[in-house]
Computed example of a mutant assay.
Amino acid sequence: MTPTTVPDNPASFPTEEASFALDGPAGKLEAISNAAEPGEARRGVAVICHPNPVQGGTMHNKVVTMVERSLRESGLDTLRFNFRGTGASEGSYDEGDGESEDLAAVVAWVRRVRPGDALWLAGFSFGSYVTIRNAVRLQAAALVSIAPPAGRFALTSVEPPQCPWLIVQGEADEVVEPQAVFDWIDSLPVTPELVRMPETSHFFHRRLMDLRGAVKHAVQPWLPPRRDG
């Protein structure tokens, strides 16, 4: 289904799937929002970040859209967006620094239109690097990291979040070295919940539904109260 196009910088969170632009530090940022089913809705919004645009990553990536679906089915409203220089987003790739400011701008809009909601951050690959490095300063209520690129980006120098944190890593990942991820997790002063998926590649080929189940199961205890409660 094609999202409904709404005016830029909406004054409220759309009640149906919608596409729009948000003001970012390098220009417009292309975004798509989705709302949880009314009877299942929780008082929270998840912002989901995509993999490296240099390698073709966008907010339409299948892993990103499956994580979005998983969190929406869990009751969270969701927002995906394209980093600077990706799709219709303005600007150019900035190795995670500018993308961190893109994320901060998107989060600022979410907090403006949903001031009482819990903010969740989720990301896949490069997107998980951006969300991990900003989880503390953006005061995320929960963090979901899919195939975090340990060994490819400087995750060891990032202050780890204290919030609930799920990491899902395929054991046959051909892009991110799985053992580098496991070694990095072992070095952390906090203990994230780790789901290791055997015989699973970086893009979760033939394992997307397993990813959906893993995310939904793991985040269940962390969900905020129901919106109508």
Rank of each mutant, 00 (worst) to 15 (best):
V175R: 05
I167K: 00
A31Q: 00
L29I: 01
T4F: 00
E40Q: 13
A154C: 08
G57F: 05
R80F: 08
D94P: 11
L79S: 00
L79K: 00
E95T: 08
A36Q: 02
G91Y: 14
D102Y: 03
P53W: 05
A36E: 01
G91F: 14
L22T: 00
A147H: 02
L79C: 04
N61T: 10
P189I: 10
E101A: 15
A214Y: 01
E90N: 11
R206I: 12
F83L: 13
G170E: 03
R114N: 07
N82K: 09
V106D: 03
R112I: 02
A105H: 02
S201P: 04
V176I: 10
A142T: 05
V45M: 06
T78V: 13
A150D: 11
E177Q: 13
V113G: 11
T15Q: 13
V176W: 03
E177S: 09
D97S: 15
W109Y: 05
A150N: 11
G151E: 11
L166A: 03
P192N: 10
E171W: 04
M1K: 08
S89Q: 07
Y93N: 13
D8R: 10
L166Y: 01
R206D: 15
A35D: 01
R152N: 09
P160A: 09
V215I: 15
G127S: 05
V107Y: 05
V190S: 07
L119V: 12
S125R: 02
S19R: 09
E73K: 09
A150M: 10
A172Q: 13
S201C: 07
T58Y: 14
E199T: 14
A21K: 00
V195R: 14
D173Q: 08
R72N: 11
S128G: 08
A18E: 03
N134K: 07
S89T: 03
D94T: 02
S157N: 14
T2E: 11
V215P: 00
V219S: 02
V175A: 08
A135C: 10
F204M: 10
W165E: 12
R84E: 04
F13Y: 04
P192L: 02
V113R: 02
A118C: 08
T131K: 03
